[in-house]
Design a protein around this nucleic acid. Structure first.
Lengths: 153, 153
DNA sequence: TTCATTGCAAAGCCTTTGCATAAGT
DNA sequence: ACTTATGCAAAGGCTTTGCAATGAA
């Protein structure tokens, strides 16, 4: 009911805990990068996040963004996604369900998808080879409705 | 029946046609790289192929291997695979069915898989978003039977 | 003869690292 | 105080590109 106590799943708290647990230190830069990152909706590159972070903190360095992004992945707040275009992207992970990606090759539009049957069969295939599955990557590439009509404007 | 006439699907012929069609030129280097590539079973990096090619042709350059590999992909004889470890790999594509990959994170072992149900549902998911599918990438990561017992020797 | 290819080295590109300084704990 | 973090710039690692020389067609 209170407005001032931080919510259970407050990313800043989660991150602070993660930092503290490993004897690391919380800094204004890390707080700030996390804050900006949590406002992002889709999949940002380090470069893109760096640009946005810099808007409100001129002195921050690119390397700090890279380093913090790795930490965020470690803490479970972020997740790396490699769409195969040579850039690493990061998306929010906290409190979100696993999902895969459907990517339009015309306009770059990116739809998050989840198909229980696919997920289930992935487990089955792995098991049939005696593997235990830790994770997977599924990217579907195609053309969205708009780009099917008018490809690559 | 004849031994001397090249088989229908002779890679050298396919590649030569591809080269000729676009006004490019066939060279000993390209022939040689293709020949060595076709002897590879799994998924080779440009570096690995370069090393093998060099065994029998000391003067060949790394760049030529890179360039030829791109051409081979264009001709449909090769296919790029990005397992997410920072290296591009290439596998033979000609006359082979599509397949995905199941990768052991312990020993790097790589099993080719194919699940019709998964394939079918990928199409369905794309269609449900109005997308037409051109291709996809599915990588399953886990531990093979051996590495489950004795992880990372 | 003409235009693509080659091999070398240099450049690109994204990401990581080294280091002196700054700053959490 | 003791260590970690920061920002800068340099270094890495893989891939691509520029260029003069070479070689297909």
């Amino acid at each position: 009911m209170s407005q001032s106590s931080p919510p259970k799943g407050d990313p800043q708290v989660i991150f602070a805990d993660y930092i503290a647990e490993r004897g690391l230190k919380m800094t204004p830069q890390r707080r700030h990068i996390l804050e900006v990152f949590m406002r992002q909706d889709g999949h940002v590159t380090s470069e893109e996040l760096y640009a946005k972070v810099k808007d409100s903190c001129k002195t921050i360095g690119q390397a700090t963004v890279y380093r913090t992004l790795k930490l965020l992945c470690g803490s479970g707040l972020a997740k790396e996604a490699d769409f195969g275009d040579g850039l690493l992207r990061y998306e929010r992970q906290q409190g979100r369900d696993h999902h895969d990606h459907l990517i339009c090759e015309g306009c770059g539009r990116n739809v998050e998808i989840l198909d229980p049957t696919i997920e289930k069969h992935q487990e089955a295939v792995a098991r049939s080879h005696g593997f235990t599955l830790t994770h997977h990557k599924l990217y579907l590439y195609g053309l969205c409705p708009r780009c099917q009509v008018k490809p690559r404007p």
